[in-house]
């Protein structure tokens, strides 16, 4: 376990129970997931039962208990994107990457997720890879976009 990295994160907080979610968000950002050993330390320092941390970690969609891929591809399936084929877009990406929605490719390059709404509804269907938005993505544009990350 990389205790120094974890200490770096914890040192930014007062370690009150209310700091739990921001601490987990920082761990998720830094490690790409929430490693079990680190969570045990967090439990100790924030004086919370590990079970409470587990409940929070599994409740919120952004947390993952297993490592995510190098790139995270979020296909929007909000209402407008749904009407304009967002679900089929997600299936097409899933087929192209050979990975089910919610999972990570074997080479750990991609995690494929669907998301409730990215807030760019006027350009539906939309998807986001890491921090980059892609507008009006039709199925035929998928291979070219994915290639940039492969």
């Amino acid at each position: 376990m990389d205790l120094q990295r974890l200490e770096g994160i914890l040192s930014r907080y007062d370690c009150q129970p209310a700091d739990l979610i921001p601490v987990l968000q920082d761990i998720q950002d830094s490690y790409n997931y929430l490693p079990k050993d680190e969570l045990k330390v967090v439990a100790q320092r924030l004086n919370l039962p590990l079970a409470h941390i587990y409940s929070v970690a599994t409740f919120f969609a952004m947390f993952s208990l297993v490592p995510k891929g190098k790139h995270v591809c979020k296909v929007c399936v909000g209402t407008t994107c749904h009407l304009k084929g967002g679900q089929r877009l997600a299936e097409s990406v899933s087929n192209r990457l050979g990975v089910e929605i919610g999972y990570t490719t074997k080479d750990m390059n991609f995690t494929l997720e669907t998301v409730g709404c990215l807030g760019s509804c006027a350009q539906a269907p939309v998807m986001m890879i890491d921090d980059t938005y892609y507008a009006r993505v039709t199925v035929d544009k998928v291979p070219k976009i994915l290639k940039k990350y492969q």
Binding site: P17, A18, D19, I21, P22, L24, F60, A61, M62, G116
Partner: peptide, 25 residues
């Protein structure tokens, strides 16, 4: 600023408050 963690129900005020307190929404 308090950042959400990906739960629609946290738009409901009591769930949002629980989430700021470090609990599930």
């Amino acid at each position: 600023i308090s950042q959400g963690a990906g739960a629609f129900v946290c738009g409901e005020e009591t769930a949002l408050i629980a989430s700021i307190e470090g609990k599930i929404g």
